[in-house]
Design a protein around this nucleic acid. Structure first.
Lengths: 121, 121
DNA sequence: CGCATAGTGAAGGCGACGCTTCACTATTGC
DNA sequence: GCAATAGTGAAGCGTCGCCTTCACTATGCG
């Protein structure tokens, strides 16, 4: 591990909660992990195969997800069971809420944009 | 630039919109940039000094933010004016909405968590 | 016991990121 | 015109992040 055990930093500053959440969600593998977990709580070992990565990689991702409070894990016996944790999700929601007000005040358009079906080029 | 101009990828797969949004928001400097922009539209050059980074770095961040549709910029004369763009924000909102339902179905606790003032250790 | 299974720790490869500096172009304003 | 200002392109540096393999421990089970 070595690097993953280190306290996450951002520049020289200590990482904040929202830093961790955004960083955790920034990786598509971790989002896939979350998606799998949102269906049902599962042992770590069952997550590796569908994503085609090693169990070690899964454990490493789980550590990141746990640090950001998006996932909570419990180890019973030799198996570590993982389930979604709402805390990190709530932190994200709080951030969004805070900034939505600022942005909508300036843009006053988010509502309409959300109603649009999609607008990819 | 070279690397920043390259199409963002995630593994071997082309990056999706939400990939770009999360990645863009994962960097605290870019969030600070967004925060500054949410107050008022400003030329790129005015963003560098308060963040204590070079103008080049700002431009690079702006490219990332534009690719994720969180920021839109217009160049008039020699100055590039930047303002918040709701599209990326809407994409994020959509993602959250989609997954909130799944997670609350499992957790049925998000509501209470959001009502709690804060719960950092 | 003895073998298979689930998870950990350490170390390293390698590409991506954030930033800088230098060189250069395009505008602005005297 | 000319100097100052705003932005770009290219290149490179140090670090981080994702993943792997190998070695090892702990638990479950016939």
């Amino acid at each position: 591990m070595s690097r993953n055990t280190r306290v996450r930093r951002v520049g020289t500053r200590r990482a904040t909660d929202i830093d961790r959440v955004f960083h955790a969600l920034g990786d598509p593998t971790r989002r896939a992990l979350l998606e799998a977990l949102s269906r049902e709580s599962v042992p770590a070992s069952s997550l590796a195969k569908p994503l085609r990565i090693s169990l070690t990689a899964v454990i490493q991702h789980l550590r990141v997800l746990e640090a950001s409070r998006l996932v909570r894990t419990v180890k019973v016996g030799r198996t570590r069971t993982c389930h979604v944790d709402a805390s990190g999700f709530a932190a994200l929601d709080r951030w969004i809420l805070d900034h939505r007000t600022t942005w909508t005040r300036r843009l006053d358009r988010l509502g309409e944009l959300l109603d649009e079906p999609e607008q990819e080029p």
